[in-house]
Protein backbone atom coordinates (compact mmCIF):
# COMPACT_ATOMS: atom_id res chain seq x y z
CA UNK A 1 0.00 0.00 0.00
CA UNK A 2 1.61 3.26 -1.04
CA UNK A 3 -1.15 5.81 -0.64
CA UNK A 4 -1.89 7.70 2.54
CA UNK A 5 -5.51 8.13 3.59
CA UNK A 6 -6.47 10.69 6.21
CA UNK A 7 -9.78 10.85 8.03
CA UNK A 8 -10.58 13.75 10.34
CA UNK A 9 -12.71 13.14 13.42
CA UNK A 10 -13.90 16.33 15.14
CA UNK A 11 -14.23 16.38 18.94
CA UNK A 12 -15.05 19.28 21.29
CA UNK A 13 -12.14 21.75 20.87
CA UNK A 14 -10.09 18.98 19.33
CA UNK A 15 -9.53 17.09 16.13
CA UNK A 16 -8.21 13.60 15.56
CA UNK A 17 -6.53 12.81 12.26
CA UNK A 18 -6.52 9.07 11.59
CA UNK A 19 -3.77 8.22 9.11
CA UNK A 20 -3.79 4.97 7.16
CA UNK A 21 -1.09 3.67 4.83
CA UNK A 22 2.48 4.71 4.14
CA UNK A 23 3.60 8.18 5.20
CA UNK A 24 6.26 8.10 2.50
CA UNK A 25 8.04 11.09 1.03
CA UNK A 26 5.72 10.89 -1.96
CA UNK A 27 2.72 11.27 0.34
CA UNK A 28 4.09 14.25 2.29
CA UNK A 29 2.05 16.70 0.20
CA UNK A 30 -1.14 14.80 1.06
CA UNK A 31 -0.27 15.07 4.74
CA UNK A 32 0.56 18.77 4.43
CA UNK A 33 -2.78 19.52 2.76
CA UNK A 34 -4.72 17.69 5.47
CA UNK A 35 -2.86 19.42 8.28
CA UNK A 36 -3.38 22.81 6.65
CA UNK A 37 -7.11 22.11 6.73
CA UNK A 38 -6.87 21.60 10.48
CA UNK A 39 -5.19 24.99 10.84
CA UNK A 40 -3.36 26.25 13.89
CA UNK A 41 -6.14 28.08 15.69
CA UNK A 42 -9.23 26.02 14.98
CA UNK A 43 -8.58 23.45 17.71
CA UNK A 44 -6.89 23.51 21.12
CA UNK A 45 -5.65 19.99 20.56
CA UNK A 46 -4.91 17.90 17.52
CA UNK A 47 -4.14 14.21 17.83
CA UNK A 48 -2.60 12.32 14.94
CA UNK A 49 -3.44 8.64 15.16
CA UNK A 50 -0.71 6.53 13.54
CA UNK A 51 -2.17 3.15 14.45
CA UNK A 52 -2.62 2.21 10.78
CA UNK A 53 0.72 3.63 9.62
CA UNK A 54 3.56 1.13 9.20
CA UNK A 55 6.09 3.44 7.57
CA UNK A 56 7.11 7.07 7.80
CA UNK A 57 9.89 8.92 5.98
CA UNK A 58 11.71 12.22 6.41
CA UNK A 59 9.41 14.47 4.37
CA UNK A 60 6.37 13.30 6.33
CA UNK A 61 8.31 13.93 9.55
CA UNK A 62 9.00 17.43 8.24
CA UNK A 63 5.27 18.05 7.83
CA UNK A 64 4.60 16.91 11.40
CA UNK A 65 7.29 19.27 12.69
CA UNK A 66 5.92 22.19 10.68
CA UNK A 67 2.42 21.53 12.01
CA UNK A 68 3.72 21.18 15.56
CA UNK A 69 5.19 24.69 15.19
CA UNK A 70 1.93 26.06 13.81
CA UNK A 71 -0.03 24.56 16.69
CA UNK A 72 2.49 25.76 19.28
CA UNK A 73 2.42 29.30 17.89
CA UNK A 74 -1.37 29.31 18.15
CA UNK A 75 -1.22 28.06 21.74
CA UNK A 76 -2.44 24.58 20.87
CA UNK A 77 -1.00 21.10 21.27
CA UNK A 78 -0.19 18.36 18.81
CA UNK A 79 -0.05 14.79 20.04
CA UNK A 80 0.76 11.50 18.33
CA UNK A 81 -0.69 8.14 19.32
CA UNK A 82 -0.90 4.50 18.26
CA UNK A 83 2.69 4.50 17.02
CA UNK A 84 4.01 1.10 15.93
CA UNK A 85 7.34 -0.11 17.27
CA UNK A 86 9.29 0.47 14.07
CA UNK A 87 7.97 4.01 13.73
CA UNK A 88 8.51 4.70 17.45
CA UNK A 89 12.11 3.55 17.01
CA UNK A 90 12.53 6.10 14.23
CA UNK A 91 11.24 8.84 16.54
CA UNK A 92 13.83 7.74 19.11
CA UNK A 93 16.70 7.64 16.62
CA UNK A 94 15.88 11.14 15.37
CA UNK A 95 15.20 12.42 18.92
CA UNK A 96 11.81 13.60 17.69
CA UNK A 97 10.33 11.72 20.63
CA UNK A 98 11.46 14.77 22.60
CA UNK A 99 9.25 16.95 20.40
CA UNK A 100 6.30 14.58 20.16
CA UNK A 101 5.34 12.64 23.27
CA UNK A 102 3.81 9.36 22.08
CA UNK A 103 0.53 8.13 23.56
CA UNK A 104 -0.96 4.66 23.48
CA UNK A 105 -4.41 5.72 22.32
CA UNK A 106 -6.47 8.62 21.06
CA UNK A 107 -8.24 8.89 24.41
CA UNK A 108 -4.97 8.97 26.34
CA UNK A 109 -3.66 11.72 24.05
CA UNK A 110 -6.85 13.77 24.42
CA UNK A 111 -7.03 13.33 28.19
CA UNK A 112 -3.46 14.37 28.95
CA UNK A 113 -3.27 17.96 30.13
CA UNK A 114 -0.32 20.27 29.79
Amino acid sequence: MNTLEIQIDERPNAAVAHLRGNASNTEAETLRAALLELGGARYDRVVIDLDAVQFIASMALAELIEFHKVMHKAGGRLRLCGVHDSVADLFKKTRLIEVFPLYDSVDAALEENG
Binding site: A62, E66, K69, K93, T94, E98, V99
Partner: peptide
Amino acid sequence: IERPSGRGVML
Protein backbone atom coordinates in the same frame (compact mmCIF):
# COMPACT_ATOMS: atom_id res chain seq x y z
CA ILE B 1 15.85 18.80 16.46
CA GLU B 2 12.93 20.96 15.33
CA ARG B 3 14.38 21.74 11.91
CA PRO B 4 11.95 20.22 9.41
CA SER B 5 14.52 19.10 6.84
CA GLY B 6 17.92 17.44 6.73
CA ARG B 7 17.12 13.97 8.09
CA GLY B 8 17.64 11.87 4.96
CA VAL B 9 21.36 11.14 5.32
CA MET B 10 21.03 10.62 9.07
CA LEU B 11 18.31 8.01 8.53
